[in-house]
Amino acid sequence: MLHVDTLHAHYGRAHILQGLSFHIAPGCALVLLGRNGAGKSTTLKSLIGLVRPTSGRITLAGQDIAGHEPHAIARAGLGYVPEDRRIFTELTVMENLEVGRLPPRDGRPPWTPERLFALFPNLAAMRNRPGGRMSGGEQQMLAIARTLMGNPRLILLDEPSEGLAPVIVEHMVHAIRAMRDSGVTILLAEQNLHFALAVADQAAIIEKGRITWHGPIAALQADPALREAWLAP
C-alpha cells in the first residue's frame, strides 16, 4: 500500500529524517515506535506533506506522492490524524465531519456520519456540539472520524492514546481494530507499548531518523532484549 524509500527531511536546520525506508502491505496495521525526537511525528508529517521531504520516494498504492501539496496527498487517499487532534473548536461535530468529506473511493461504500456514529457511539449524542466543548477523549474520536470521512486507503495516527484516560484508550483500541477490519490500512506512531501491542500487527523501530528494526509485533513482544534496546535512554 505504502512504500517509503530513503526519505530525508529537515525541520529548520535540523536533519530529522536521514534515509528512512519502510513499507506497509494493504490491510496491515504498522506501529512506528521510537523515542522522542527520533522522527516519528516528522515521518507522518512528511507523508501527508505538512513537512516537505528534502529527498526520497513515497508511493501510495503505486502513485508517487513525495513533495506534493497536503491536499493532493489527502485526495490520493492518505488520511492524517495529528497528535494534538486539531479539532475545529468553533465547528459542530457534524461540521467537523463535513470538512473531512471527500468523494468515495474504489467503489467501496463511503464513510458516512451514521457509519461513524456506529463506530464511535459517544459522538452520536453530540452532533451539534461545538468541538471546543468536548473532552479530550471525545475530540480524539472526532479527529479520527473526521479523517475517515475522506475515505482514506491508509490512515496515519499520531499517538492516538496520548493524554487519554485508560478506559478511553480501551475504546480507542476497539475502534482502531474495527477500522482495520473494514479495510483501512493503518500506520500509527506510539510511545505506549501496551497500546501498540493491542492494535498493531507489524512494528518498526525508528532511531535518529532511520528504521533500525522492522518485523511482526509478535517478535517484538517475544524479545525483551529488543524492547530494552528501544526503551533504554
Binding site: 497536503p70 491536499h71 489527502a74 461540521e95
Partner: peptide, 21 residues
C-alpha cells in the same frame, strides 16, 4: 464551513484534502 475551519487551522484543513490556496 471550510472557510470557518481554515480560520482556525489552515494546515489541518489542507491535510483533510482541501486546496487552501
Amino acid at each position: 464551513t471550510l472557510v470557518r475551519a481554515a480560520t482556525e487551522d489552515r494546515d489541518m484543513v489542507a491535510a483533510l484534502g482541501v486546496d487552501q490556496k
